[in-house]
């Protein structure tokens, strides 16, 4: 399993060959609270970095999840539709959202390492 990288908007990606797994960080799920609904894109959709990739809804509010890098939606985690609470229980594991086929590997350099993300979380609190 490859290295996990993070955005300032609290999405993560994990590199698995030329596909990246995208989800939201443990911090993000704790801020959202109980997830009750998730809207995922269709496989094949092309996303540019920063595009809205998914919508995640807690009891109180809806939040957008943005594509951390550009690419084509390769696979979606359809199990989340029946079990959205998986995002709270295991956000960086079985609670992943989508897999993207990278279109520009150089974009990875703009993301934070796990250590940098921890520093970033400390800085916003």
């Amino acid at each position: 399993m490859g290295e996990t990288k993070y955005t300032k908007d609290h999405e993560y990606i994990r590199l698995e060959g030329d596909v990246v797994v995208v989800g939201i960080s443990d911090y993000a799920q704790s801020q959202l609270g109980d997830v009750v609904f998730v809207e995922l894109p269709k496989a094949g959709k092309k996303l540019a970095k920063g595009d809205e990739a998914a919508v995640v809804e807690s009891v109180k509010a809806a939040s957008e999840v943005y594509a951390p890098v550009s690419g084509e939606v390769w696979e979606v985690n359809a199990a989340l539709e029946a079990q959205p609470g998986t995002i709270n229980e295991d956000p960086e594991g079985t609670g992943w959202f989508i897999k993207l086929k990278l279109s520009d590997a150089s974009e990875l350099a703009s993301l934070m390492s796990e250590a940098d993300y921890k520093t970033y979380l400390a800085s916003i609190h």
């Binding site: 609270g33 109980d34 009750v36 807690s58 009891v59 109180k60």
Partner: peptide, 12 residues
């Protein structure tokens, strides 16, 4: 307080 530790679902 919008919620305590257990969260809105459990509190509801």
């Amino acid at each position: 307080p919008v919620q305590y530790k257990e969260g809105i679902l459990a509190e509801h």
